[in-house]
Amino acid sequence: MSAKEKTTGFLAEFRKFIARGNVMDLAVGVIIGGAFQSIVNSLVNDIINPILGIFAGENQALGGLAFDLPGGGQLMLGSFLNAVINFFLMAFVVFLLVKGLNTFHRKKEAAPAAPPKPSAEELLLTEIRDLLREQRGGDAEK
């Protein structure tokens, strides 16, 4: 097998992988997730942060909560707490999405499949059986 065949095979396999629906779904999910991340950031920074800042003291935003360290510098505790809150909100939303999709797929799989239609031979045999039953029933009544 030549190097060209390997490359062609590899590229063909890569093209096949990219063309699958799962990869496109993943790409759409990543884009929507990135857009949703900005919404979560705004929620945390503009709504949750100021509310929690009331409890942090001096009515400042939680993100501004910092402690001076000996020798200079600051421990940015508020910024870290913002990142933790963002993470838990995003994890919760992803959990809800996965849970919803799993429920949807279970319902879809649980739906009973319609029984297959009988073939022409089966219909003919059923007709013959019914006619024979009628004849036997008629003979028994006489």
Results as ranks from 00 to 15, higher is better:
Ala3Phe: 15
Glu5Gln: 04
Thr7Leu: 12
Leu11Lys: 04
Leu11Trp: 11
Leu11Asn: 09
Ala12Asn: 13
Phe17Trp: 11
Ile18Met: 13
Ile18Gly: 13
Arg20Ile: 01
Val28Phe: 10
Val28Gly: 06
Gly29Ala: 02
Ile31Phe: 07
Phe36Val: 00
Phe36Gln: 02
Phe36His: 06
Gln37Phe: 08
Val40Glu: 10
Ser42Thr: 08
Leu43Phe: 13
Val44Thr: 01
Asp46Ser: 12
Ile47Leu: 12
Ile48Trp: 10
Pro50Lys: 07
Leu52Ser: 04
Leu52Trp: 07
Ile54Leu: 11
Phe55Thr: 09
Ala56Asn: 11
Gln60Glu: 15
Ala61Ser: 15
Gly64Leu: 02
Phe67Ser: 03
Leu69Gly: 08
Pro70Ile: 00
Pro70Glu: 15
Gly72Arg: 02
Leu77Trp: 04
Leu81Gly: 07
Val84His: 07
Ile85Glu: 14
Ile85Gln: 05
Asn86Gln: 10
Phe87Ala: 03
Leu89Arg: 00
Met90Tyr: 02
Ala91Thr: 04
Val93Asp: 04
Phe95Tyr: 15
Leu97Gly: 08
Leu97Glu: 12
Val98Asn: 11
Lys99Gln: 15
Gly100Val: 00
Gly100Gln: 04
His105Arg: 03
His105Gly: 01
Lys107Gly: 14
Ala110Asn: 14
Ala110Ser: 08
Ala111Arg: 13
Lys117Ile: 02
Ser119Thr: 14
Ser119Ile: 00
Ala120Met: 12
Leu124Phe: 11
Glu127Tyr: 06
Leu132Asp: 14
Leu132Phe: 10
Gln135Glu: 14
Arg136Ala: 13
Gly137Ile: 01
Gly138Phe: 13
Ala140Arg: 09
